[in-house]
Design a protein around this nucleic acid. Structure first.
Lengths: 120, 120
DNA sequence: CGGAATCCTATTTGATACTG
DNA sequence: CAGTATCAAATAGGATTCCG
């Protein structure tokens, strides 16, 4: 999450350092965006061009896709690469660090699927 | 650097990204709230009364705490129990199912702490 | 004490249009 | 193709107040 707790205009801001340094929060912030799990899923299957990602997720708007990709880039999960071919192509792929999310995503999916089953 | 990606996600066979039945999304929705990780952390240490949770998280408002607790209740993670004592006390505790989140939370924390270290 | 109701702000997401 | 700009809508979270 960006910066400080934002909704406290009047009170003097005391930010609990433990809170900002919380690993769980940090991890959630990285993967939390609405489309990020899907982006990660697609990119774990193959490198993708922007338009391929759009095609794989027809419901995401261009703007939303851009934003989530930039955030994933900023966080070192995804790399944007322009190929040397002609015509050059923009491709997105997981960074090496991005691949370390794999196990975590597996757990999330595992727990989440069980949750969905229980909830019916 | 690390060698080859060690945690390569096992590709779930067929995932329709359009479907809202995505396990990852479901899991994230359960734990995503701003205070939920902290609530889960506190409750994994001990049963807590409402006011104890407030004391443990001085920055959360009563309204926000209520809301997150109700959501966790709805999702079967947390149980609200009123004791038979006099005066009666309201206590919150993890359900049995709630405890199954433990491993997932550990992974999140682990990855997140590494992320924070890298980011400096 | 343990909340619910109300109101308000900030962040997130989406829709649409436009550009190199 | 690969985005950006702009605006509108939805949502999350906080502050304050009030109640049993």
């Amino acid at each position: 999450m960006k910066g400080q707790p934002s909704g406290r205009p009047k009170a003097p801001e005391v930010v609990d350092p433990l809170q900002e340094q919380c690993g769980v929060r940090a991890a959630l912030d990285v993967i939390r965006g609405r489309w990020k799990p899907f982006i990660l899923y697609e990119l774990h299957l193959r490198r993708c061009r922007y338009s391929e990602l759009q095609a794989a997720m027809p419901q995401v708007s261009a703007q939303a896709l851009s934003k989530q990709l930039r955030e994933l880039e900023r966080d070192g999960i995804v790399a944007r690469r322009v190929t040397e071919d002609s015509p050059p192509r923009t491709v997105y792929e997981l960074t090496e660090y991005g691949w370390t999310l794999g196990e975590l995503m597996d757990r999330l999916e595992e727990w989440g699927n069980d949750f969905l089953k229980r909830r019916g």
